[in-house]
């Protein structure tokens, strides 16, 4: 979680220096969802991500240096500079890709689960999407197909309460994404997305059921993005009071308190983590900044296999 937050803060800095190629959608405030859910993943599992995908990639142990190089449009990036922030992918680590289309990754997760079953793999596909995607047709088509085929997909809705400028309550009938699971006859569960243990427990339950062949589940994680919609966002439409209120429910601070209270870690241990994270991000930024621009000739490569 600390690594994700530090990574995103560094992206802010790099953007101020004019180094980010295009935009980036920061995950600050939502770290417990990616880390909690991905901790329930096994080797051979896959995930599909979203336009706000840096957290999922770091939680799946992608290299922050190569991620940062991609965001800066450099040749050492995961996609050789062709994807940018919204398309970071590492198939070898099961990350089938961030996705620039809201709801675009949901049917792909279902297809991946179908293909994996065909190949007799017991893998589970973790499908991340935002609350806005739950109003796309692709969400309903994909949940229906996954349910009717009992596919091993854990649908994880990251409800950060806001689309770019539209609040959840004003755009989403029924007031709950999790309850939509009932329409497809699958388990739907709402959890506190700022509580890493709650997310981990729900994801573990859902993945366990899927591995037993009991089909998909939908988990709605309540959380909040601290920053604007993207690093391009200049106008903040949300009330400062609301932002401050959610910052008081900081998932990292909550985790830190719990670790110390339960004596699972000391303040010194946690300080050491922060130091290591700082060093790793500094190394990543240095690597990304020194990575060369991609050669122009590569713009016409990789169109066809």
């Amino acid at each position: 979680m600390c690594l994700i937050r530090a990574f995103e803060r560094e992206i802010h800095v790099l953007n101020k220096d004019g180094l980010v190629s295009g935009t980036a959608h920061l995950y600050i405030g939502m770290e417990a969802i990616a880390v909690g859910a991905c901790a329930a993943m096994a080797d051979g599992d896959f995930l599909t991500s979203t336009h706000r995908g840096h957290g999922h990639c770091i939680a799946r142990h992608l290299d922050p240096a190569r991620m940062m190089a991609e965001i800066l449009g450099r040749s050492d990036g995961y996609c050789r500079g062709k994807g940018g922030s919204m398309h970071i992918t590492d198939r070898s680590k099961g990350v089938l890709g961030a996705d620039g289309i809201v709801g675009g990754g949901i049917p792909i997760a279902v297809g991946a689960a179908y293909g994996l079953r065909l190949m007799n793999k017991s893998s589970v596909v973790f499908c991340f999407f935002g609350e806005g995607a739950s109003n796309q047709g692709s969400f309903h088509e994909a949940l229906n197909l996954a349910a009717i085929q009992r596919l091993s997909v854990v649908f994880i809705c990251e409800n950060n309460q806001w689309a770019l400028s539209a609040p959840f309550v004003a755009t989403t009938a029924g007031g709950s994404v999790a309850k939509r699971a009932a329409a497809y006859g699958i388990v739907g569960e709402e959890v506190d997305g700022n509580d890493i243990d709650a997310v981990f427990a729900a994801a573990t339950r859902a993945a366990g059921r899927a591995r037993e062949g009991l089909g998909p589940a939908l988990i709605e994680c309540q959380s909040y993005r601290w920053e604007g919609h993207s690093i391009f966002t200049r106008q903040e439409i949300r009330q400062q009071e609301e932002i401050d209120d959610w910052k008081r429910r900081d998932p990292i601070e909550r985790c830190r308190r719990k670790l110390i209270e339960t004596q699972m870690a000391s303040a010194e241990d946690l300080a050491l983590i922060e130091t290591e994270v700082g060093a790793e991000i500094a190394r990543a930024a240095e690597f990304a900044k020194s990575s060369p621009n991609p050669d122009e000739s590569s713009a016409l490569e990789d169109i066809y296999a």
Binding site: I106, V110, G137, L145
Partner: peptide, 24 residues
Amino acid sequence: LDTPISEAAIAGLGVGGALVGTRP
């Protein structure tokens, strides 16, 4: 696979299946 009448899901089934190594 006889699918539901869900063209976006059918296409996603194909893309996702292809990404993990099948040939839909």
